[in-house]
C-alpha cells in the first residue's frame, strides 16, 4: 500500500458515496446513466469472486464487499425505488457494443486461461469503458449537475491515481501488470475531456454545459 493507491481507493469510495447521497437527498437519479451503473455492478461482481478463494487483508475484503454491495444498491435505487426519475430517453448507449467485444478480448488476452482469471480480465477491460454510457448521456443532454460532476471527477481521479501507484510499484517493488496498466490508462484517457471541463468550469463555480 502506498499513498497513491490509498488516495485512489478513497477517491473511489468518495465517488460512490457522493452518488448515493445525491440520489438519496434529492430522491432522484436524473442525469445518471443506469447503463453505466449496471456495468460497474458487473465489473465488481466479476472481479471480486476471489473473495471466496483467497484472503489478502481485512482492508481488501471490506472494500470489495463495500463496492459490490453499493453498486447493487445504486442499481436498485435507479431501476426500482427512484425509477420514475430515471432519464432513460437519454440513456441510449448500446452496451452490447462494449460487453461483447470486451468479453471476447478477455478470452484472447489474459494472464492465464482459467475461469476466475478470465472474469478478472473481463472486469478490468469492462471497467475501462464502463463510463462511456454516462459520458454519452451527458453529451446528449448537453449538461451535468454540479454534484454529478464531482462524482465523475472523483471516479476518474481514482484510476489516474492508480497509474501513479503502478509507476511507484514498478520502481520500488518490481510489480508490473500489463493488463491493468493498459486498461487503466485507457480508462483515464476517456476522462480527460471531462477533467478539462471540470477544472475550467466547475471549479470556477459554473455548471458544465456543452454547445448543442
Amino acid at each position: 500500500m502506498n499513498i497513491f493507491r490509498l488516495i485512489g481507493d478513497m477517491s473511489h469510495l468518495l465517488a460512490i458515496i457522493l452518488l448515493l447521497l445525491k440520489m438519496w437527498k434529492t430522491r432522484s437519479c436524473a442525469g445518471i446513466s443506469g447503463k453505466s451503473q449496471i456495468l460497474f455492478a458487473l465489473v465488481f461482481a466479476s472481479r471480486y469472486l476471489d473473495l471466496f478463494t483467497s484472503f489478502v487483508s481485512v482492508y481488501n475484503s471490506v472494500m470489495k464487499i463495500f463496492f459490490i454491495s453499493t453498486s447493487l444498491l445504486t442499481v436498485y435505487l435507479m431501476y426500482f425505488k427512484f425509477r420514475a426519475t430515471y432519464d432513460s430517453n437519454h440513456d441510449t448507449f448500446r452496451v452490447e457494443f462494449l460487453v461483447i467485444p470486451v468479453g471476447g478480448l478477455a478470452f484472447l488476452v489474459n494472464h492465464e486461461f482459467s475461469p476466475l482469471e478470465i472474469l478478472w480480465t473481463f472486469s478490468i477491460y469492462l471497467e475501462s469503458v464502463a463510463i462511456l454510457p454516462q459520458l454519452f448521456m451527458m453529451s446528449k443532454t448537453g449538461e451535468a449537475e454540479t454534484i454529478t460532476s464531482h462524482y465523475l471527477f472523483a471516479l476518474g481521479s481514482y484510476r489516474a491515481l492508480y497509474i501513479l501507484n503502478w509507476v511507484y510499484r514498478y520502481y520500488f517493488e518490481g510489480f508490473f501488470d500489463l493488463i491493468a496498466v493498459v486498461a487503466g490508462c485507457v480508462q483515464t484517457i476517456l476522462y480527460c475531456d471531462f477533467f478539462y471541463l471540470y477544472i475550467t468550469k466547475v471549479l470556477k463555480g459554473k455548471r458544465i454545459t456543452l454547445p448543442a
Binding site: 476471489d50 481488501n60 472494500m63 478478472w120 510489480f175 508490473f176 501488470d177
Partner: peptide, 10 residues
C-alpha cells in the same frame, strides 16, 4: 516482473 497470484489491488 510478473503478476501476483493473489491480487491485492481493487
Amino acid at each position: 516482473l510478473g503478476y501476483p497470484e493473489t491480487k491485492d489491488e481493487l
